[in-house]
């Protein structure tokens, strides 16, 4: 998954390096200044053709433009800061970034928590301290994770 907050930051950074205003760059791309502004703050996503045009204007590869070769740095106290939320969740469940899940769960929305819990349930993520996780879950999340079989969970702790 592509982190479009990072891509937007990159577009803004390159635009300033090339000393272009938003209007000037938008004119080159045949889009409105507002559309470019949305790309730069990560609220909307450029089309593939627009991205390839940007690569030509800034003379960089699409890998660099999309930050494919860069490692993401996540602040454990604010895991979503500077990144697209879905991107961070995807990185967590695919184990590309390691976070202490019980201690960052509070930063996630209920839907994001379910995504992470589903990955834990499917064995895609391992938790060091299950008890620490369980005490951070709501009753329905606990039921979702354990299927109502707390006995099985206790067995695995032994």
């Amino acid at each position: 998954m592509i982190d479009f907050v990072e891509v937007g930051n990159k577009i803004a950074k390159l635009r300033r390096e090339f000393k272009l205003s938003q209007e000037e760059l938008a004119d080159q791309l045949y889009i409105t200044r507002q559309a470019l502004s949305k790309w730069e703050n990560g609220t909307s996503i450029p089309s593939i053709d627009s991205l390839l045009e940007l690569c030509k204007i800034f003379s960089i590869s699409f890998e660099e433009m999309l930050c494919l070769q860069e490692d993401s740095e996540i602040d454990p106290d604010n895991i979503f800061s500077g990144h697209n939320r879905s991107y961070v969740i995807e990185q967590i469940i695919s184990r590309k970034i390691k976070v202490d899940i019980p201690n960052v769960l509070y930063q996630m929305s209920p839907a994001e928590r379910l995504v992470v819990l589903k990955a834990i349930k499917a064995g895609e993520i391992e938790i060091d301290d299950e008890e620490e996780l369980f005490c951070k879950l709501t009753n329905s999340e606990m039921r979702f994770l354990t299927g109502g079989n707390l006995y099985e969970v206790e067995k695995s702790n032994n």
Binding site: M1, I2, I45, I48, F62, E63, L68
Partner: peptide, 12 residues
Amino acid sequence: PFLNSADVKKLF
């Protein structure tokens, strides 16, 4: 936007 790196490269 939802593809992994390998698929993005293939596509581009």
